[in-house]
């Protein structure tokens, strides 16, 4: 950080890249680290606020967590390392991605089961309808429906 700052001062001194003289609040010399930091501040939750990630929050503890994240990422720790570090101190609440356990696994299981069950029910019912209702009856029903359709179409035209 200091080195970068010195570099920036020198750069502006020599009238090189004058536009870059503005200091980033959290400056990285490595694009990958910057990306990790951006992801982390989006995914870590401010433990004190209503419902905000630490990138958006200006609460004290959010600033502290952001600084700590910055420090750890600068040191070269991976994304998971930082998450583990924060979870060890602030609990699972601090991470917006829930851990997979006996309860949270249902977040994935229930939707998948529902998907298959509903599709299964539809096919089954369609078959039931097919076998239960005689073809003659269906033909009549179709005729009534077609009649209705043409009626409404006629009405549309009139309107």
């Amino acid at each position: 950080m200091l080195n970068l700052y010195r570099f920036l001062i020198m750069a502006s001194f020599f009238w090189l890249l004058p536009l870059q003289a503005v200091e980033q609040t959290y400056a990285f010399d490595d694009v990958n680290k910057q990306a990790i930091f951006d992801e982390l501040t989006q995914e870590l939750r401010c433990p004190k606020c209503q419902n905000q990630n630490i990138a958006d929050s200006n609460a004290m503890v959010a600033i502290d967590l952001k600084n700590k994240t910055y420090e750890l990422v600068q040191k070269g720790e991976s994304k998971q390392d930082v998450i583990d570090f924060m979870v060890a101190r602030y609990g699972q609440f601090v991470h917006y991605d829930p851990p997979v356990n006996a309860v949270t696994i249902w977040l994935w299981i229930i939707p998948v089961i529902l998907l298959f069950v509903l599709v299964f029910i539809m096919f089954k019912r369609n078959k039931e309808t097919t076998t239960r209702v005689s073809d003659d009856y269906l033909k009549q029903a179709e005729e009534v429906l077609n009649q209705l359709d043409s009626d409404s179409a006629k009405k549309d035209k009139e309107a």
């Binding site: 433990p47 004190k48 609460a59 004290m60 503890v61 502290d64 967590l65 700590k68 101190r89 602030y90 609990g91």
Partner: peptide, 12 residues
């Protein structure tokens, strides 16, 4: 630097 507080999981 509030490092101890952070290690303790203090929010305020």
């Amino acid at each position: 630097k509030r490092d101890l507080s952070l290690d303790l999981g203090v929010t305020g």
